[in-house]
């Protein structure tokens, strides 16, 4: 239903958001119950912990047409699973480097710590990210590489 999202000629970024079940997803719930208004550009995918966010999810989202990927986890020291958010942070730094090498602007990938109490922070982060990505324009994806002549199969 892109016709509905891309009203007129204005570019509306598509942001895939991976929110952890215990902090950021609840913060987004709190934003809802507090009726805090923010940009309608995110599509939240719930994971139990930001540590569950496989780098492949992020790359897949960019490959499938996301203009941005937002990962939301608990604040350092507050992870429901003790340290999953640290694992997410480590992966995020590696991913950032990788994404940059692929020619994807840094602003398109973002990791934020948003606790269950910070409903308003969801608004701030989402609106800010939407603005920044809107300024960048749609993600320019590189054409797919030629397929390898023969598929390499693992034995």
């Amino acid at each position: 239903m892109s016709d509905l999202v891309q009203i007129g000629a204005k570019f509306e970024p598509r942001i895939v958001a991976f929110f952890c079940n215990w902090c950021t997803y609840l913060a987004a719930d709190l934003a809802g119950t507090s009726r805090i208004k923010y940009a309608p550009n995110t599509r939240v995918i719930r994971v139990m912990c930001s540590g569950r966010v496989d780098p492949q999810f992020v790359l897949d989202a960019f490959a499938k047409g996301a203009d941005g990927v937002l990962i939301g986890g608990c604040h350092p020291n507050d992870c429901h699973y003790q340290e999953g958010n640290y694992k997410a942070l480590r992966r995020y730094h590696l991913l950032k480097r990788m994404v940059r090498q692929m020619g994807i602007e840094e602003e398109r990938l973002r990791l934020e710590w948003i606790s269950a109490a910070e409903g308003d922070r969801v608004r701030v982060v989402v609106n800010d990210m939407v603005e920044k990505i809107r300024a960048l324009g749609p993600l320019k994806r590189q054409p797919a590489a030629e397929p390898a002549p023969e598929e390499v199969t693992a034995t």
């Binding site: 994971v47 139990m48 540590g51 569950r52 966010v53 496989d54 780098p55 897949d60 996301a66």
Partner: peptide, 30 residues
């Protein structure tokens, strides 16, 4: 939590209810 699932280089660790396929479908779906 699924941290090990995301870390497994061979994809041999899976998570019930949050299987890779399920999340890839969600990504593609949105």
């Amino acid at each position: 939590c699924g941290t090990c699932v995301a870390a497994c280089p061979t994809g041999s660790i899976r998570q019930h209810l949050f299987e890779d396929e399920e999340i890839f479908e969600e990504i593609e779906g949105v």
